[in-house]
Write a protein that binds this DNA or RNA. Structure first.
Length: 260
DNA sequence: TTTCATGTTCAGCA
DNA sequence: GTGCTGAACATGAA
């Protein structure tokens, strides 16, 4: 379940569990998730080392194990990380770090759309991938400029990882709902005020979700996230939620709250 | 049995 | 080049 808030949660989870512990063994259960690195090279790079620090950019999570060596993870549509003791490995564990303490850290990724690999630095990786600035590390003026640099509908612009990194399908719907902007509204039709509202709601939605530690049921009842279903009742007005297909993804919005 | 799913990437088209 | 659509990737739930 990985958009920015979930990945941020995994980062904090790793910080709390897995730093400065010696990696006795690295186990690759599915080579499919390896990106640009062989199992052999990955094992050689990491075994005997310890994780030092973590950072996140958009939906990518980075963990250093020497000053210029970073392991990165991307979850795709499914997955998380799990830290546990003993031999009971979680289902769909694709890469496992065995610490000498007897604990393990597992990269869990059911659908195998996830990727892990190595890079010399998160910034280098981000520029190679064309990743934009992190959605929570962006000021209003740059947000406005970057959104305007992208034409077309506002929803795909929000989700474009080269414009800003971290927002996916679910949170883009939430941000647009709270900003009262229709997902098909063109970015060129948005004025400074619209973009400011969008920016403030983006920060609010993402930071509140980070705070609730991915427990969606703890998010306010006024949020769309609980009603992402065609013909569901809008949490704010009497309209019914509608489904729209935009850029190959299904989005949900309220035709009453979100006018064009 | 069919459709759909919190992502990314690529081909084809206007 | 830009934006949009559909498909592919792999697995499971409804």
């Amino acid at each position: 379940m990985p958009e920015l808030p979930e990945v941020q949660y995994y980062k904090e989870y790793i910080d709390a569990t897995s730093l400065r512990k010696k990696i006795k063994e690295l186990e690759v259960r599915s080579r499919k998730v390896l990106s640009g690195v062989s199992e052999k090279r990955l094992k050689r790079a990491l075994e005997g080392k310890s994780f030092l620090e973590t950072t996140r950019r958009g939906k990518y999570l980075f963990i250093s194990f020497s000053p210029e060596e970073w392991f990165y993870l991307h979850f795709g549509m499914t997955g998380d990380v799990r830290y546990y003791k003993g031999a009971e490995d979680p289902k769909h564990a694709r890469v496992l770090f065995r610490f000498s303490s007897g604990y393990s850290l597992a990269f869990v990724n059911q659908r195998l759309f996830g990727k892990v690999g190595l890079t010399r630095a998160p910034e280098i990786f981000a520029s190679e991938k064309g990743l934009g600035p992190d959605a929570l590390d962006l000021d209003l003026v740059s947000f406005q400029a970057r959104m305007r640099s992208k034409r077309g509908a506002v929803k795909p612009a929000l989700m474009d990882q080269s414009v800003l990194a971290g927002v996916g399908n679910i949170y883009s719907d939430e941000i647009l709902f709270q900003s009262r902007i229709h997902p098909r509204q063109l970015t060129t039709e948005l004025d400074d005020e619209d973009l400011k509202r969008l920016y403030l709601n983006l920060r609010k939605v993402l930071s509140k979700s980070v705070e609730k530690k991915t427990e969606l049921e703890k998010l306010p009842g006024s949020w769309l996230i609980h009603s992402r279903e065609d013909k569901a009742k809008c949490p704010r007005c009497d309209s019914r939620i509608e489904k729209v297909r935009i850029s190959g993804r299904n989005g949900y919005f309220c035709p009453g709250c979100q006018n064009r």
